[in-house]
Nucleic acid binder design. Structure first.
Lengths: 213, 213
DNA sequence: CCTGTTGGATACGTTCGTGTATCGGATACA
DNA sequence: TGTATCCGATACACGAACGTATCCAACAGG
């Protein structure tokens, strides 16, 4: 059988193994990087044989893609949650803190995500998926920013809430790059805070900063 | 012989082959990504045998490292040149345009650079080198910004010219990420311009934007 | 409990890349 | 031009990972 397309009997043990393979793959990818990882390594880490792998996935690329979708959706939910907590007025510093917690804390995820970026940069189809994810994220941010207008006036240069959301994502990406190299989460969080306040406020506001452990 | 450490006869043909191998490697890495590339592929692309490779490099990692240093230094020189052209007063938009030309135009370089980032993220020694490069770049930017103070007041949030330079690099990294996915250079240049003006000016200045082809 | 289907393990042949050891042509220098 | 040295090509043996074909055990349904 190919993967799991036919109707067939329901399944049960299959779900476990698939999940185990994905979890193991995440760990191995984070440690060694996709591209330096063999199918066998993933299987060994998960405690399965290669037969199990080929029964669940057609290739390592397919697994990687599935893995990314799984984790990215998970993160997206968490971000949405972090943005939706408080009332109609947006407490920018608090929101930034909560989102940062989700986005910058798990180094393994950053590594895998960057691997996936590199992968997508060479495959338009994959890139499309990633761009879609990013667009959804931007939309959520823009939506949140729109409700907070009046509290903080956005700089005109960026052009509306959509532009501001775009800028937020860019700042996040920039900080991520640095974090991957220096491994200093505190530094990264502080900088993300600074950049966001610089980008989202009009420059007249010098508050909104906290020292983060 | 190991690599090229012994005194030995000077050399000549060796220099050519080494350069050819590096050039071929750049093309192959950009196309397929480091990690998906074999030594044989590089040799074939360069028109040499594997013997030539092992005579010049000890491993693919070593070649990759040498390649990065070569190209990064080259780019760094170009950036320095682009920043040093005009007089003591800094024409921000023009400088941004010139630097952008160097930094965002060559997609192949962006790909290889990101591959190297991923590589460095998992190897502290390599990361140190990359951080050093980035520090030099930041220093050059900070130096340039310092001479332009008074023309444009920097936002207080970033804290001095060093902070501003840091922000500039972050913006560049952020834009790069997006560019790798959507391949829209014009878009990237426009956004880099917007972000930089938003970061470097006090928010009161809405000029300084151009539409870039 | 029995049975047919499914999921994963094992075993196999093959391909691909590696690293080394050796050889012949090219090159610098007198 | 001669010659000692260097450089890259060729040949070889080895190992790693792949994909498949086959087999046994686990499991759902009756």
């Amino acid at each position: 059988m190919a993967v799991g397309e036919t109707t067939g009997r329901v399944t049960r043990r299959r779900v476990r193994t698939r999940a185990n393979l994905l979890d193991a793959a995440f760990a191995v990818f984070a440690a060694k990087g996709f591209g330096r990882v063999s199918i066998e390594e993933v299987c060994e880490a998960a405690g399965y044989s290669r037969g199990a792998f080929y029964s669940n996935f057609g290739s390592l690329d397919e697994l990687f893609f599935a893995l990314y979708r799984q984790r990215a959706d998970q993160i997206a939910d968490q971000v949405a949650g972090a943005l939706a907590v408080d009332g109609p007025g947006l407490d920018v510093p608090a929101a930034v803190d909560r989102v940062t917690e989700v986005l910058l804390l798990d180094r393994d995820w950053l590594l895998v995500k960057t691997d996936f970026l590199v992968h997508a940069a060479r495959d338009p189809a994959v890139a499309a998926t990633l761009l879609e994810h990013r667009a959804r994220l931007r939309a959520a941010i823009a939506d949140r920013l729109a409700r907070a207008r009046g509290h903080t006036a956005l700089p005109a240069v960026l052009g509306g809430t959509d532009g501001a959301a775009h800028a937020v994502v860019a700042a996040y990406d920039g900080v991520t790059t640095q974090l991957l190299l220096d491994r200093d989460t505190g530094h990264a969080r502080a900088w993300l805070g600074r950049l966001l306040t610089a980008l989202l406020t009009d420059g007249s506001d010098t508050t909104g900063q906290r020292t983060t452990a």
